[in-house]
Write a protein that binds this DNA or RNA. Structure first.
Length: 338
DNA sequence: AAGGTTTCCAACCGCACGGGG
DNA sequence: TCCCCGTGCGGTTGGAAACCT
């Protein structure tokens, strides 16, 4: 027996919203709020719409301060960085971009950013393989596979975050925002009670509205210290006193409280899987086969205990190193550590 | 100008989760 | 402890608009 539908499909209008419907919904919510029950809301207003549809319309379109289109370069960077770090967690990404909705970002990524970022790379790579131009490429080793702008990848002008947030589809125990919330709480974090989910990740109190809450973390991420596992001030803000960064906490997270593989190891592993997904776009592997090490990093983090991935290397570094190696070696598979 | 193709985005769908009874 | 219900999320779809031939 299937799940009961959330509303009477036969008596529910579908498709684009009319200005009248918009006006009704907006006026009601502005005056009364949602009442905590979206399902009952359309009946109260007299709309022949599904409650979920009302909620979506409000969140994605009618809600105040919504921005549509016109994504800035900075927003592009944030989206790309976060996508690489945490995957398609659009609600989390949206929470870092004031005025943007998850749906907007998702659409923007799927229709533009993805192509913008990877399309060119894949074309170049395929052409190179087909034409057997590896030798030429070696000579042009300055040409990174990453599209560049003024000598810098426009989508990674600064190293992106490696926010250690797990991908829900890959771990049933960390399958949603609540799990992430718990995890971040474990890190010493704190959350506001934002039921819209707009502030799932705690923003530092000092963050102004004109500054991307994410901005600080980008800057911090360039550090190569081991604390780079926490490049985001939301995890490590001593100023706010909300996040633990002490050795005990670190040990717990890295190793697990009872000796099991630490959560961050798991998460880093997932980030690595994320790169394998990117592989599909790039037509190349940014990861190593086998032991998950690469030649440039083997000395600096290869002796880092059981960590299968470089704890001190940001995803950006990791990505770029891989790309650089490929362009030099002319092969998609990197040699393992020597 | 017309027809075909591609792009873009609003909206829908199904699933998973948490809360409450 | 189980079940039901509402909510929120991410993936997908349909159609309008833009672009191409």
């Amino acid at each position: 027996m299937g799940r009961a539908p959330c509303c009477d499909k036969a008596n529910v209008k579908k498709g684009p919203w009319s200005p009248e419907e918009d006006a009704k919904l907006k006026a009601f919510i502005e005056e009364h709020g949602t009442g905590g029950n979206w399902i009952a809301l359309p009946q109260k207003i007299g709309l022949k719409r599904c409650g979920k549809s009302c909620r979506l319309r409000w969140l994605n379109y009618l809600r105040p301060n919504i921005k549509h289109g016109g994504f800035s370069e900075e927003e592009d960077n944030i989206i790309c960085s976060l996508y690489i770090s945490i995957g398609s967690r659009w609600s989390i990404i949206a929470a870092q971009l004031p005025g943007r909705t998850d749906n907007d970002i998702k659409n923007y990524w799927n229709t533009r950013l993805k192509k913008k970022l990877f399309g060119k790379q894949r074309k170049e790579h395929q052409a190179r393989r087909i034409c057997g131009l590896n030798q030429e490429v070696k000579r042009e080793s300055g040409n990174s596979m990453i599209p560049e702008q003024d000598g810098q990848n426009p989508y990674f002008p600064q190293p992106p975050l490696a926010i250690p947030v797990p991908h829900p589809n890959q771990d049933p125990h960390l399958s949603d925002h609540t799990a992430i919330r718990k995890l971040l709480l474990k890190l010493g974090g704190r959350f506001s009670d934002d039921h819209d989910g707009a502030n799932l990740i705690q923003r530092p109190l000092h963050t102004s509205t004109t500054q991307f809450p994410y901005q600080n973390s980008i800057n911090l991420a360039s550090s190569s210290s081991s604390m780079n596992f926490f490049p985001n001030p939301y995890y490590s803000t001593a100023q706010d006193g909300q996040y633990c960064t002490d050795d005990v906490c670190m040990h717990h997270i890295l190793q697990g409280s009872s000796g099991e593989r630490g959560e961050l190891q798991e998460m880093h592993y997932r980030n690595a899987q994320r790169f394998e997904e990117l592989d599909c776009f790039c037509g190349t592997s940014v990861l190593n086969e086998g032991n998950g090490t690469n030649s440039t990093e083997s000395t600096s983090w290869g002796d880092g205990g059981s960590l299968p991935f470089p704890p001190s290397v940001s995803t950006y570094d990791y990505y770029q190193q891989g790309m650089l190696q490929e362009s030099v070696l002319g092969d998609s598979k990197y040699p393992t550590s020597q």
